[in-house]
Amino acid sequence: MLQAIEVSYRLPEGQEILRAIDFQLGRGEKVVLLGANGTGKSTLLKVLNGLLPPTTGTVSYDGRVVDRAALREAAFHQRFRREVVLLFQNPDTMLFNPSVFDEIAFGPRQLGLDDVDKRVHHWAGELGVVPLLERTPFGLSGGEKQRVCLAALLILEPKVLLLDEPTANMDPRSTGWLVDFLADINQTTLVTTHNLSLAGEFGDRCLVLGEDHRLIFDGPIQDFLGDQDRLAAANLVHRHRHRHGATEHSHFHTHDWD
């Protein structure tokens, strides 16, 4: 339902961030987007969310091209923004309302929905942030902010969730919670991460951005994770010396660094 067709993105200064990216997300699919730092994962999500216009190529949603002209159309704009949502890597950037309640209510209020109060309480309950409703979003911890942002997005009942490094600001307990939560929802999700030990938990298909900013793999995640050469080529594993008693050797491996 969300498709990238030969998408390239170049900064105004000329640096190329994405090169000829081509893939399609099916309804209800759970996809993981892997890539080393600086390969363009965040940029790709912003392009898919219609926030950055691709330099060449197109993004299409449900058969409709998502470009400036389409987004200027109020009806399509509203539908697209409501159905395709993006959780930014830094949750702070998304929070601008005076209270957590207002933050979650921001979407439904824009849509002029009734029973905003009920909806907010429902989603605050789902995400476990009911006790925070009266607080200001600025004062929350990283994990709490992430949950508030998710509540603010899910209340729109989106069809596609784009999540940019959602575990980056989370402690292990919140991370475990998020993995379970995403497994239980039936929306299409595309989750970026550079944490290989978690990648398998977020989906069964994986897309990999290489350091040349091209899509270097699209397929079952186990095939990719089991392929040392591909992992090394994508700069997702490393090698260094290990000492085990008197023997010293080195092999490719990863660390759980998040």
């Binding site: 704009h77 509203q78 930014f88 950037t93 601008f96």
Partner: peptide, 18 residues
């Protein structure tokens, strides 16, 4: 970069003319 993200996040959450 942070400022640009703030702008895009606001745009991403905007459903109508504010």
């Amino acid at each position: 970069r942070l400022f640009e993200d703030l702008r895009l996040a606001a745009e991403s959450r905007r459903l109508r003319r504010l």
